[in-house]
């Protein structure tokens, strides 16, 4: 029972880790990597951060409302 709880906890931690990695990395960490699931508007061939390697990127989080 205890082993099974440990396994569940480890699996949950792994899932959190995967979610964190797939959503990018926080400030201070090197090498933000991200692939868009759907091409952004005005993509002009950009499907992920690798396409922008060596170029400064400004991200503007906004809301229509």
């Amino acid at each position: 029972m205890r082993t099974s709880l440990h396994c569940t906890a480890l699996a949950a931690l792994a899932l959190v880790g995967v979610a964190w990695l797939s959503s990018g990395a926080p400030a201070g960490s090197a090498g933000v990597d991200f692939t868009f699931r759907e091409a952004p508007l005005n993509a002009r061939g950009v499907m992920g951060m690798r396409d922008l390697l060596g170029k400064p990127i400004v991200i503007d989080f906004w809301g229509k409302n």
Binding site: A27, G28, G31, M49, V58, I59, D60, G63
Partner: peptide, 16 residues
């Protein structure tokens, strides 16, 4: 919101 971030040429988040 709004929130802004700058990712440098080496892929590091420089400010946010």
């Amino acid at each position: 919101l709004p929130e802004v971030a700058v990712i440098g040429v080496d892929g590091t988040v420089l400010l946010q």
